[in-house]
Amino acid sequence: MGAIRKKISELTPSTAFNGLWTIGVDALNRSVRVSLQYIADTIASLKSGVETAIGNADKAATRANTAAQNADKSRAAIEANEQTRQSNERDRLSNEQTRNGNETTRINNEKARKQAEQARAKAESDRVTEHATLKKNAEDATKAANDAANSVDASKKAAAEATKAANDAATNANNAATTANNSAKEADKQAGRAKEQANNPPKMGENGNWWRWDETAKKYVDTGVLAKGGVLYPSFIVDESDMHLIMYYQDQIAENQFVLDNETGHLKFIYQ
């Protein structure tokens, strides 16, 4: 019986490659059969590899873009830094010029300072020399002044001693004169009293009592003492040749009734 021929369109369709084969020629030009599943797996593997490669390429492109962006940023930063560096360099050069100018000024100032220091040292040396001269002159003047002061002090001391001696002598003379004047006044007073008593001696009154002269009242007053034998009260006279006061009495009673105070020169009457 002959083979039954069918059209391809009449064949049962297959939705999988497993178990399906095709024919082909290999690299040696030999006829071979090839599993469609192998081809499908190979294509899937290649597709996966391509997709992986594409993904890796995309990632690489992304990284490249990021790197490019970073490079751009870095380049911009480098350019900015370069501009900053150039600006800093210009500032450095300007500062260096300023520093050079300051250094020149410092050198000039140092020269001026050294000159001023030399002038100061010379002035100090001159001052020390002048001070030594002035000090010696002052010491000489002080010594001369001290010598003069000592001489003046000695003269003042001698003058003071002489003045004191003169003052003491004058004081003693004044005291002696005062004492003499007081004594003379007291003597005159006592002489006057004695003369008054002598001119007005005690007398017997009409009532038989002794009457005495009252110096204050300037009259005779009754003593209340009965007059009896002898002269009870003494009588006084002043010797004008020597101003001595002389008392006359006739009994011992009158002698004890009058006492002379040696300190004051007063004649005291002691009434009995």
Score class of each variant (00 low, 15 high):
Ala187Gln: 08
Asn172His: 04
Thr84Val: 08
Arg75Thr: 05
Thr98Asp: 09
Gln118Ile: 06
Glu103Thr: 13
Asp126Gln: 05
Ser151Lys: 14
Gln86Trp: 01
Glu130Cys: 00
Val152Ala: 13
Asp126Trp: 00
Ala67Leu: 15
Glu51Met: 12
Ala173Thr: 05
Asn167Glu: 11
Ala60Gly: 09
Asn181Phe: 04
Glu96Ile: 15
Ala123Glu: 08
Glu186Arg: 08
Asn70Phe: 15
Ser155His: 12
Lys156Arg: 10
Glu82Gly: 15
Ala145Tyr: 02
Ala160Phe: 09
Ala60Pro: 01
Gly49Arg: 14
Asp147Gly: 03
Thr62Phe: 04
Ala170Gly: 01
Gly101Arg: 15
Arg106Thr: 05
Gln69Ile: 12
Asn182Gly: 01
Asn181Gly: 10
Ala149Glu: 02
Ala148Gln: 08
Arg85Ala: 08
Asn150Trp: 04
Leu46Pro: 00
Ser151Thr: 10
Asn109Trp: 03
Ala148Lys: 15
Ile78Glu: 04
Thr62Pro: 00
Ala187Ile: 01
Glu186Trp: 02
Thr105His: 04
Ala177Cys: 02
Glu89Trp: 04
Ala158Cys: 06
Ala176Asp: 13
Lys73Phe: 04
Lys111Phe: 06
Ser125Asp: 02
Glu96Thr: 14
Ala67Tyr: 13
Ala169Gln: 03
Thr142Cys: 04
Glu139Ser: 07
Ala60Ser: 06
Ala165Lys: 11
Asn137Val: 13
Ala123Arg: 07
Arg92Tyr: 06
Asp91Gln: 15
Ser74His: 07
Ala53Asn: 05
Arg99Glu: 06
Lys136Leu: 08
Arg75Ser: 06
Glu96Leu: 15
Asn56Glu: 04
Glu89Ile: 15
Ala158Pro: 00
Gln86Val: 07
Lys59Gly: 02
Ala112Gln: 12
Asp72Gly: 11
Ala53Cys: 03
Thr179Ser: 13
Leu93Arg: 13
Glu51Val: 10
Asn108Ile: 05
Asn167Trp: 02
Ala173Tyr: 01
Ala160Arg: 11
Ala60Lys: 08
Ala166Gln: 09
Arg127Tyr: 02
Ser125Leu: 09
Asp58His: 01
Ala132Gln: 04
Arg106Asp: 01
Ser151His: 09
Asp126Leu: 01
Ala145His: 11
Ala184Gln: 07
Ala77Pro: 02
Asn102Trp: 12
Ala71Arg: 11
Thr129Ala: 08
Asp168Trp: 00
Thr178Lys: 13
Ser48Cys: 02
Ala60Asn: 03
Glu124Pro: 00
Ala184Phe: 08
Leu93Val: 12
Ala170Arg: 09
Lys156Cys: 07
Lys185Gln: 10
Thr163Cys: 02
Arg120Cys: 00
Ser125Arg: 12
Glu139His: 05
Ile54Met: 06
Ile107Ala: 06
Glu161Pro: 00
Thr171Arg: 12
Thr98Gly: 08
Ala138Met: 10
Arg90Gly: 04
Val50Trp: 09
Ala154Ser: 10
Lys185Val: 14
Ala119Asn: 04
Ser48Arg: 15
Thr62Leu: 09
Ala132Arg: 01
Arg120Gly: 00
Ala184Val: 14
Ala64Gln: 12
Lys114Ser: 05
Ala138Tyr: 09
Lys114Ile: 11
Gln97Val: 10
Ala116Gln: 09
Thr163Asp: 05
Ala154Arg: 13
Ala112Asn: 07
Asn174Ala: 14
Lys185Arg: 09
